[in-house]
Design a protein around this nucleic acid. Structure first.
Lengths: 250, 250
DNA sequence: ACCTGAACACCGTTCAAGT
DNA sequence: ACCTGAACACCGTTCAAGT
């Protein structure tokens, strides 16, 4: 409608409106399509008009990140630390599946944004209330790394810059080239091992959710063990093994 | 010397010479400075001359990655799987410290390069010879993620796009802003906890090497435990905890 | 004082003109 | 047939001219 177009054109720009349009653009067209010029066109304004509300593109991306991080669920109230951390991280992961550009955007930052800091601060608080020392919590946060925010650097991540396509979409599964098994026999063997549906499929054949939870639980179980052992940092003493506690089998 | 310049100008371009110049450029000036135009200028040729040897910039970056991956030490012969994996990953980490652009370059790829595949294949072989089932090895490789290649997504990684500056350089340590402890009390607490040198320093105050090995050993100890328990994938059965084996304490 | 078109300094890559 | 300068279609951002 002409009237509606007129209203939209007349709606004043705001940082909030710019950020929401930028998130939508990145969601739908990919982060590579996010340019000041494209974004301005989507908003029906001249590119330079954006610079009234954001200092530069870096500040725009920072704002976009915080919009996404704000969508992560708050910690579940009654749960113990392990359940609370686990659920929150899986919530973060769901957010990142809605906004696949976020992980790359966060990685490209030189400093964490305010919302990321607030999220991490809250998670540290959950560990501390669960009986973790400040020392152990510090190292645990490092060890979790980007997994804390719901993503991890996968090496076979074909869906990274590609469009959204569920793992259950058989169309997008690339069959192994014939030479692959000859050149990389070990990789071919483990690709077959965990691919329940089609033995000639790798990458897309992996159950991403399972792999994420496998690694998450491996880490959570490991740090739980350290906490129960009363682990303390021994880095100045040359002791290399982090779990060489008293109840180690042999 | 004029003669030497003449010789250099006369030296024919080759993919190898281009790749080595590109790696040097990225090492010294950062990945952002790596453009076809800058690279051509360093080589004393016109930009379009590069396209005789590389199809496009993506292929250039792929080649650069493989140059770097080729610098990783081969597995140590006599060691058991745990030592072999550990040493190799730490070697990869040293390579990435010499070439700080590699992790971002690998992350930006949509598919792994041949040298990365060969490296991963070799590592899978080490696990398999150590008695790991193909099933477990598959999930372990996922769980290790980018750590396999010597890097992990740190959230406070200030030195990411910045120039090289050792963690021991006190000049580059940013003090915590006064409001920080008020807004993010838990983060402030754990920052102080593990900072031995200066309690008001975060980020640069962390011992990156210690944190990397802490997480690496946490994972290696965890997967060793799974392997000893004869862990098998139970993902279709709704069993969520990866370490719920028979010898769990309670 | 405010807005904005043109311009600047880049980029990867195409393509046709020149040798 | 080969090489390469100019051009194309972008980019983030500056800046001065116009209202």
């Amino acid at each position: 409608m002409a009237e509606q177009t007129e209203v939209l054109r007349r709606t004043p720009l705001s940082k909030d409106r710019i950020l929401r349009a930028a998130v939508t653009l990145a969601d739908e067209a990919g982060i590579d399509s996010l340019s000041m010029r494209n974004l301005a066109q989507d908003l029906g304004v001249v590119p330079m008009a954006l610079y009234k509300h954001v200092a530069n593109k870096d500040e725009l991306v920072n704002g976009m990140i915080d919009v996404a991080i704000g969508e992560i669920d708050p910690p579940v109230p009654g749960a113990d630390w392990k359940q609370a951390v686990r659920e929150r991280i899986l919530s973060a992961r769901r957010v990142l599946q809605r906004h696949p550009w976020v992980s790359l955007a966060i990685e490209s930052r030189t400093a964490p944004t305010p919302a990321v800091l607030a999220y991490l601060d809250s998670m540290v608080g959950t560990f501390r209330r669960g009986g973790f020392s400040a020392d152990l919590t510090h190292h645990v946060m490092h060890a979790m790394g980007s997994r804390t925010l719901g993503f991890s650097q996968e090496l076979f991540d074909a869906a990274r810059s590609a469009g959204r396509s569920g793992a259950s979409n058989p169309e997008s599964s690339a069959a192994l080239p014939p030479q692959f098994a000859d050149r990389f026999p070990h990789l071919a063997a483990i690709a077959v091992a965990a691919s329940h549906d089609d033995a000639s499929v790798v990458g897309q054949g992996c159950d991403d959710q399972f792999e994420f939870e496998f690694a998450l639980d491996l880490l959570l179980d490991g740090v739980e063990r350290l906490q129960r052992q009363g682990w303390t940092s021994t880095r100045r003493d040359g002791d290399r093994s982090v779990v060489s506690g008293p109840d180690q089998p042999s």
